[in-house]
Simulated scan of single mutants.
Amino acid sequence: MARAALTRVLEPGDERAGGWLRRTGPVELMRRITAEDGSAERLPGMTAARLGGYRLRAAAAEPGRDLAEAAAVGGRFVCPGDREWPSQLDDLGDARPVGLWVRGRPDLRLWSLRSVAVVGARACTPYGAHMAATLGSGLAERGWVVVSGAAFGVDGAAHRGALAAGGATTAVLACGVDVSYPRGHTELLGRLAQQGLIVAELPPSSHPTRSRFILRNRVIAALTRGTVVVEAEYRSGSLVTARQAQRLGRFAMGVPGPATSGLSAGVHELLRGEGVLVTDADEVVELVGDIGDLPPVRRGPVLPRDHLDAVGARVLDALPYHGVAHPRDLARTAGTSADETLGRLYELHSLGFVEREGDGWQLTPPSARDDDARRGGT
């Protein structure tokens, strides 16, 4: 109850208050804030102005009501030490959340053990939306939970991609779990509450502010094994998330875009540093997954002539593009004997590369080679 009350008294990410909470515990800290015995003034860094602000908020805190409002929308409050608490959040130290308001049926700790953040620009391009949705669906199909912030643009596309694949996705909000923000994502948030999880540090009915969005990003970074940035300008909250992930020892990844796009400039700056370039879900899983989670081998198309040995390839290269050549002339150009050249010409003929014309040889016309390839001859 004390921690639930403190989520209404303290701002997210308040490290000074986090230090007090670590030293005194939630019940004693709440007692000191509300008591008139002078004990609050003895907290390191506490000032009269700061204490006055805390007391105004504490006077309005009704944790029982907040818990009831959360329960009314299918929510609950999770504290450090609870079975459902994701212990990786402890890496934030004194900036660790006081507690988390959670909406949705799945277990937050279990879902967070195998999760990846996909974040990026709100005003993304169609390319950015496509890449975010593709990553979201690809990660979900591979059994990973997609975590994002439910904002317009990349966040929404990542959530929708995971949902479309029938996978798991978590939204970390900068407001209460019962607040639909942005309003345009009311339907999406409803689906997330039914099929996934909605998480917030702030109590029910709380509304977002600019600073709360930035502070929310540290939770996304700490909750997941890595953060993928899809489109971000130089000044972007998504880059804050990625750099926070790096400080916490997580992977920071970026999806490249056009060099001329300002929306990819921040991603490219990240990739010039410690960020890792990724282009699909397989490459993301290779980084954040377990040993053996390797992407498929990437290679270009295999052409019929790739199967020729070195001598056969030289004989084929010796043939002119137009006209007929004698085996002796081809042997001189290819650097082989006349007999070996003739033998290779017959091999090339059986594979459909060349044709005999009297005593000479010529390349098979391209249309004939294409027909043969379609029939499976080469």
Rank of each mutant, 00 (worst) to 15 (best):
D306F: 06
H322R: 14
A313F: 12
V311S: 13
G312Y: 10
A313D: 13
R299F: 03
G300V: 03
R332K: 13
D309H: 04
A338F: 13
A310R: 09
R299Y: 05
V315P: 00
P301N: 04
S337Y: 01
H322P: 03
S337D: 15
G300Y: 07
R305F: 03
T333V: 15
V311C: 07
V302I: 12
R299P: 00
H322F: 15
L308Y: 06
V288N: 00
R298M: 04
A325L: 12
V285Y: 09
E283D: 05
D339Y: 05
L303N: 01
L330W: 10
A331C: 10
H322S: 14
A325Y: 13
T333F: 05
L316N: 01
V297N: 00
I291L: 12
L303I: 00
V285H: 07
P301E: 12
H307A: 10
D282V: 10
V288S: 00
S337G: 15
H326K: 08
G335E: 07
V285F: 09
R298G: 00
A281R: 03
D309Y: 04
D339R: 14
G323P: 11
A281V: 02
H322L: 12
A313Y: 13
D280R: 01
A318F: 15
L308A: 04
D309P: 06
Y321A: 13
D329C: 10
G292E: 06
R314Q: 11
I291N: 02
H307P: 01
V297G: 00
L294A: 08
G300N: 06
I291Y: 12
D293C: 01
V285A: 07
V315I: 14
L316Y: 10
D280P: 00
D282A: 13
H322Y: 13
V315D: 07
V324R: 09
V284T: 00
G312H: 09
P304E: 01
P301S: 10
D329G: 15
A338D: 14
G323Q: 05
A318K: 13
G300F: 06
S337R: 11
P296D: 00
V311M: 08
A313L: 12
L330H: 09
L319F: 11
R332P: 02
D282S: 12
R328T: 14
G292L: 05
V315F: 11
P327T: 12
V297M: 05
D317L: 13
D339V: 14
D282I: 10
P301D: 09
R332T: 15
D309V: 02
T279H: 11
R328Y: 11
D293A: 01
L294I: 04
V285M: 03
H307S: 10
A310K: 06
L330Q: 09
H322V: 15
P295A: 09
H307R: 11
G300E: 11
A338T: 15
P327V: 07
P304C: 02
I291S: 03
H322K: 11
Y321N: 09
D290C: 03
V285D: 03
I291K: 07
G312M: 02
D280F: 01
P327A: 08
L316C: 06
E286F: 06
G312C: 09
G300L: 09
H322C: 11
D282G: 04
S337A: 10
G292F: 06
D293N: 02
P320C: 14
V297T: 04
E283K: 02
R305E: 14
T333M: 11
E286W: 14
R314P: 08
